[in-house]
Each structure stands twice: as C-alpha cells, then as structure tokens.
Simulated assay, not measured.
Amino acid sequence: MLHSIALAVWIAALGWLMTILAIIGWRREKLARRQLRTAIEQRLGIDLLTGLAHRSAFLAQAEHEVNRSQRAGHALSVLLVDIDDMRALNAHYGHHGGDLALRHVGTVCRTLVRDFDVLGRFSSEEVAILLPDTRLEGARSVAERIIETVAAHQVVLEDGRRFTVRVTVGMAELASEVEDAEDLLLAADGSLKRAIERRRENETA
C-alpha cells in the first residue's frame, strides 16, 4: 500500500517536474527568438513585423531630415499614428491580433505616402511618418486619409474573426523653435495626447 502511494506521488512529482521544464524551455526558446529578432532588426534597420524602419533607424533619418530642412529652409512635418485601445485589442484577440493590427496600420501608412516620405515603427502601438516639403495642412490631409483607410478595412484572424482598427494621429511642423528631431517628435507627441483626450471626451459625452 505504502509502495503504491509512494509510486503515485513519484509519478505526480515527475509530471510536475516535466511541466516545469517544458515551461522553462518554452520561455528560453521565446527569449532566444526575441533576441534573434532584435539582432536582425538592428542589423537591417527594419522592424520585421511591419517592414518599416525600426525606432533607432527612424530617429537617425529624422535627425537627417530636420537638419536638411533647416539648412534649405524647407517645410517638414511629422505624424504619430497611434492605435486606439491597443491593450483591449491584445486582451480580446491576443497579442497576435495586436501584431496584425499594427501590421495593418503600417501597410496602410506605406500605401498612402510618397516614396520619399520616411516611415518607422515608433513604439509597440505607434507608427511615425516624416513628410518632407509638407506644411501642417498637408500633413493633416494625409492623417485624415490614414484614419479613414485604416478603419475601412478590417483585420481578419486565422479563425475567421474580424475586427476594425481605429487610430488617432498627432502631428507637428518644423518651426523656428524646433532645434532637432527630438523637439519635433515631442511636439507631435503632445498633439497626439491632446487628440486622444478629445477622443475620450467625445466617447463619454
């Protein structure tokens, strides 16, 4: 009797240990994949999910464009395209759904801008777009087209579920008080935060 109990306990403990080892192995594999992906992105300067420039590559290009526009006296605007309620999307459709939403936004942005505009994945839920030789009014027109087009085409999951992605856009134009790319992006970020606040106020009104 005691032998049978001990055997059952040993089998249960072995099963528990195998489960723990499997979890550890899965986490290590996931970490290794993430590290490999990061290394490739840094090497290529491209975000593998969206196909856009990754953040550091985009920032380097932004600094170049700001310097060029300042020297030549040309207009330059920037857009920050933020996915609405990304946390809720991830919670409801999983992180894969969130990835598909970001890829969808990146694809729409790429199709609606000019060949010489600069796009990058700016954060986990934002795409940034530099618009050389573009004043704020022109940037606003691009932003409106992005907002409309993103919402007009649903994202489709492998299981057939569909969902609509909506975005909020902040924007800023190169001005005399802007010293560098960081200033320009901070101005766009401030514009984005105000736009998000207005959207939330409208939703609760």
Rank of each mutant, 00 (worst) to 15 (best):
A39L: 14
L89N: 03
L112T: 10
A32L: 13
E63P: 03
R135G: 12
I5A: 15
A195H: 01
R140S: 08
R140F: 03
T149I: 03
G138C: 06
I40A: 08
V9F: 08
S4R: 11
G106A: 06
E126G: 02
D47H: 06
R110E: 00
L174M: 08
E63W: 00
V105Y: 00
A205Q: 09
R135E: 15
A60N: 05
R28Q: 11
L174A: 06
N67M: 11
F163Y: 08
L102E: 07
G25H: 06
I5M: 15
R68T: 07
I46E: 09
G94D: 03
G190R: 07
W26F: 05
A60V: 02
F122N: 05
T204C: 10
Q35Y: 02
A60I: 01
L2C: 12
V142P: 07
G170Q: 06
N90S: 01
I196C: 08
M86W: 13
L102C: 09
W26Q: 14
E179V: 08
T134L: 05
I5T: 13
E201N: 12
H74S: 13
C109T: 03
N90V: 00
G138D: 13
S69V: 07
T134P: 05
A151Q: 14
A91F: 06
R27Q: 13
A39T: 10
R110H: 01
G106W: 12
H64S: 03
K30P: 01
S123F: 10
I5G: 11
T38P: 13
G97A: 10
E137N: 13
E144A: 15
A139H: 02
D99W: 02
E29R: 06
K30E: 12
D99H: 06
S77A: 11
L7F: 04
A175Q: 14
Y93E: 09
N202Y: 15
E126H: 07
A101D: 08
A151W: 15
L185P: 00
Q61W: 00
R114S: 07
V150D: 00
I23R: 07
A152T: 01
M1E: 11
T50V: 07
C109R: 00
